[in-house]
Design a protein around this nucleic acid. Sequence first.
DNA 1: GACCTGCTGCGGGCTG
Length: 710
Amino acid sequence: MAYELLSQPIRKYIRDKGWESLRPIQAAAISKILTTENNYILASRTASGKTEAAFLPILSKTNFNEQGVQVLYISPLIALINDQFGRVEDLCKNLEIDVTKWHGEAKRSLKKKLLEHPNGIVLITPESIEAMFVNAPYNVAQLFSNLKFIVIDEIHSFIGNDRGLQLTSLIFRLREQTKKEIIIIGLSATIGDENYPEAKRITGNIEKTKVLLDRTQKSTVASFKFFKSETKELPLDLLKDLYVETKNNKTLIFPNSRAKTEEISVKLRRISDRLNGHKNYFSHHSSVDKEIRESVEHFAKNNVRFDFCISCTSTLELGIDIGTVDKIIQIDSTHSVSSLVQRIGRSGRRDGETSIVGIYATGNWNLLQSFACWQLYKNGFLEPIKMASKPYDILLHQLLSIVKQTSGITIERLINGLKANPTFKLIDEKEIRFLVDQSIQKDYLEKIQSEVILGIEGEEIVNSREFYSVFITEPDFKVIHSGRKIGQIPFSPQIRLDENLLLAARIWKIKDIDFKGCVIEVIPAKDGKTPMFFGNGGAIHGEIRKEMLRILKKEDIYEELNEDCTSELEQLRFEFQGYHISDFDLDRPLVVKENQIIWFTFSGTVINRSLKMLIEMSGHEVIMNEMNSSLEIDVPEISPNFLKDIQNNYIRLDSHLEYLLSKDDFLLSFSKWGKYLPLQFQIKILKERFFDFESAINLIDNVNFRMSNT
DNA sequence: GACCTGCTGCGGGCTG
């Protein structure tokens, strides 16, 4: 029995809490963590007690009287650290274990106190670990040389991206500082079976990392509605229906964009005011001030009596506890199935409760995409994610960080350290040496006999506040109302005196702009427009597109769809019925018009993007439509010559990419540190991370174009 | 028709 394995004080904690039994994931984690030395990934749905599943056995097993921090908890969000701090402190309060928050907004006095007596548990972000390595490497040694456990929360948010590679590298560097093995526990609610190898890579030891999985799913009820949108703004009928659906509930609305988030919260409140409904309409996204967001979270979590409606983006997708939510509304399709899983997980959090999700579509293709996501959700599909195998940009970043950390290191030690780092396992030693040589050439590094130190250019890169993170953020203007910060918005032509805009679920008039200090002063107003935000969103996975094609070709009637949705779907099916698709991998519809063809690729964003470039290289104009996954190409027909031409373009890709990169570095804007790489490495990361030319060429080689015979 | 994430050290001025 798992309970009997726990230490006395932990058993007392469980008794005092009045828990009748341990959750399945908790029982499994306790047995395994207490009896083995493996790393574990705990995969279990939201609100299933994963934090306790990790900490109960860790607290049982660890001797906190030893010098040094014993447990390091790593989180992707400051907000999550602040939220989990209370829970972990509660677990520790009778055990006399200190818990310390260590992030950019944590109190310095408490950090100082920890440095004087390093002990207990520390909650930290990856960027704060990076900063400590760069600015105070002696603190890393002082705090973590006796570290026993690392807990990584929301580990899926680190899979398949640069931040995950950075974290993998930082964990390796932490391990180099300690005498004993560190055991790593990763937590996640949405991690597909195919992604376990990638999650295990983060621990640095794939063989020694096991998965504990609780597949129990909550039942979910979905209903689809259709309101055609003719303009940029949402149809009034949709808003009225939305109001009725949400007025007597605790609801989260996900409209996919910050602008729509503002539009919905302001307009719903206006309807509610007119009908004497409640006033608790909020908006929550990255441009709303942190303090306002916290007060919204606090309201949702601590009030029981009042209904509320929070219109939000993915800021409320991750694990921050906002208490009970009755209903989730999704406006148009999510960009991934895993995002849908996270959002649905926010409602019906208690055991046995059903999640309720209402989905509104404003266009037929959007309806098809959101229904495809829903079908894949029911099948348990989650997008497989690949970590970059040769992340030269992260290698360069870590190389500079290590040289700063060591204040000078022999070239051989530097190269051996990078070679041993599992993050860069697939990068050859020859390539690492070349990158070091290039860095010396460009003054990022300076060679002094057999050692390197940071060069003049390197100092400038490393000694910047921007160095600690591996993702790019645009500069913002602060929005202030009588001394209080409302949020921050990007600069756009819209930012002019007397212009009105929506922010934080309110309407404001711009009264003053300080261009130098990047501050906008506003006063309340009666009517206004949504602010202009610039985003470039994520890529849609090919499986969603394939599912869309399958649904188009089926004749099934679905009970989740209301009458309007069903007739929209029937209409789309009618348009495509003449194409005779039978092989969903290779048969693709083709429309031939005068001097133009439209190819419905039903492939993911990355392949579409690659096809577009390959076709453009032949001098054709291509318009890529991401909504219906089509390419409009200015040729009269798909002739054998046309296809051969494209296949030949594949051979001269490198020189084409080289030409594009020499014009500007816009293509590379997905990689923060890529611009410091030698050209041939820039081309390689483009081909690995932004495009997938192999799959695109494979599709061109094997596709069967189907033309309509109606 | 598009999401999100984090952040040092130092010095000056102000508050309790």
